[in-house]
Each structure stands twice: as structure tokens, then as C-alpha cells.
């Protein structure tokens, strides 16, 4: 089963997400800040990254995603967003935000699993 890295500074979000994904049989590694996040990804080579958009600073998630891409990590990234709807700002993926999909917090288990599966499927097709 695939290995997924969750990078979020909220331990409760990591805990809940971990439980959801573990219940579907995924293996999970996690980190609470961008630095540690980068380390666990480079060391464990997960098949998918779940990345919170706003850690210490509002754009930490973006910068980490950009760093992953620059450094050749081409695995899918699913981004957790938090206030986009609240402040009327919709993220779109692109060069600035090089991620594959978004999940708006609070996370619902079904939606999370659905998006994770879809991204992993796409990744399998792409590598075939």
C-alpha cells in the first residue's frame, strides 16, 4: 500500500487525517513544520504528500510545494486549505502553486479518501 506524508502544524489535523487514511490501509508519516516535512519526504520517498497551506507563515505551504518541485519531487501533492472560502479567495493550481488538488478544512473523511485515491490512480497511469 502507498506511503503518504502529511505535513501540517496542527497535530490534531495530522492525527485525524492519519486515522482516516490508515483505516484505508495507507502507511503514514507526518511532520509539523516545513523543514521537517522536507526531511521526511526526501528520506522516505512517499507516493503522495498532503501539505497544509498555512504553517508558520501564510505561504509556507506554497513555498514548500515550490521547493519540492524545484528539487525534482514529482509526486502528487494534495493541499489542505483553510481560509480560502472564508476570505473569498479561491486557490488554483499552477506554477505558483504547483500542487495537484485541494481539500478545504475541515476535512471530511470521504472526500479526503476520494481525492487521495484519485491522485494515486492518476499517478499510476502516468508512470505506466
Amino acid at each position: 500500500m502507498a506511503l503518504i506524508a502529511i505535513i501540517d502544524d496542527d497535530p490534531d489535523i495530522i492525527e485525524a487525517s492519519t486515522l482516516v487514511l490508515k483505516s484505508k490501509g495507507y502507511d503514514i508519516i507526518s511532520a509539523g513544520d516545513p523543514e521537517e516535512g522536507y526531511r521526511i519526504v526526501s528520506e522516505n520517498k512517499p507516493q503522495l504528500i498532503i501539505l497544509d497551506v498555512m504553517m508558520d507563515e501564510p505561504d509556507d505551504g506554497f513555498f514548500l510545494a515550490q521547493k519540492f518541485r524545484r528539487d525534482g519531487f514529482n509526486i502528487p501533492i494534495l493541499m489542505y486549505t483553510s481560509v480560502s472560502k472564508t476570505i473569498g479567495f479561491e486557490y488554483g493550481s499552477g506554477e505558483m502553486v504547483p500542487v495537484d488538488d485541494f481539500v478545504e478544512k475541515p476535512i471530511s473523511p470521504d472526500q479526503l479518501v476520494e481525492k487521495v485515491e484519485a491522485l494515486l490512480q492518476k499517478e499510476i497511469k502516468r508512470s505506466e
Binding site: 490534531d12 485525524a16 486515522l19 482516516v20 483553510s82 478544512k105 475541515p106 476535512i107 473523511p109
Partner: peptide, 22 residues
């Protein structure tokens, strides 16, 4: 953001507890 973060965490837990599949 500060208001939503704890709400998101609590809702995440509640959804987990309420989810029949997990």
C-alpha cells in the same frame, strides 16, 4: 484563520467518530 483552525480540528475529530466506515 485562527478561528477556523480549532473548528477544523474539532470537526475533523467529530467526523471521524461519527464515520461508520472508520
Amino acid at each position: 484563520h485562527e478561528l477556523k483552525t480549532p473548528i477544523a480540528a474539532v470537526l475533523g475529530y467529530l467526523k471521524l467518530i461519527l464515520d461508520e466506515n472508520i
